[in-house]
Amino acid sequence: MELFDVYPLYDVTPVSAKGIVITDDKGNKYLDFYGGHAVISIGHSHPYYIERIKS
């Protein structure tokens, strides 16, 4: 199935994220202002939730 041509596609491969910063496989850093569909906006790797998941 082919994707609908609704959103532009970028040649970005995220490899890590912390807070609102995403780093791609080329070392470029991006600010992630997108909270996502039906999710809360807590950023990436929030320490409270990381600790809760670990415990």
Results as ranks from 00 to 15, higher is better:
Pro8Asp: 09
Val6Asn: 07
Gly35Cys: 03
Arg52Lys: 15
Val21Pro: 00
Leu31Asp: 02
Lys29Cys: 09
Gly19Asp: 13
Gly35Leu: 03
Tyr30Val: 00
Asp24Ile: 03
Glu2Thr: 09
Val6Arg: 11
Gly35Ile: 02
Val21Tyr: 05
Ser16Tyr: 02
Ser55Lys: 15
Pro47Ser: 05
Asp24Cys: 05
Ala17Phe: 03
Tyr34Pro: 02
Ile42Gln: 07
Leu3Glu: 12
Arg52Trp: 02
Phe33Met: 10
Gly27Asp: 04
Tyr7Val: 12
Ser41Met: 10
Leu3Arg: 15
Tyr10Thr: 05
Tyr49Glu: 14
Pro14Lys: 03
Lys18Asn: 14
Glu51Trp: 08
Arg52Val: 05
Ile20Gln: 13
Phe33Pro: 02
Ser55Arg: 15
Gly36Thr: 00
Thr23Phe: 12
His37Asn: 06
Ile53Gln: 07
Tyr7Ala: 10
Ile42Arg: 05
Lys18Glu: 13
Lys26Gln: 13
Val6Ile: 15
Ser41Cys: 03
Tyr7Ser: 08
Met1Cys: 12
Ser45Pro: 01
Arg52His: 04
Gly19Asn: 13
Gly36Asp: 00
Tyr48Ile: 12
His37Met: 08
Lys29Leu: 09
Gly19Trp: 09
Ser41Gly: 00
Lys18Thr: 14
Glu51Met: 09
Glu2His: 08
Ser45His: 01
Ala38Phe: 02
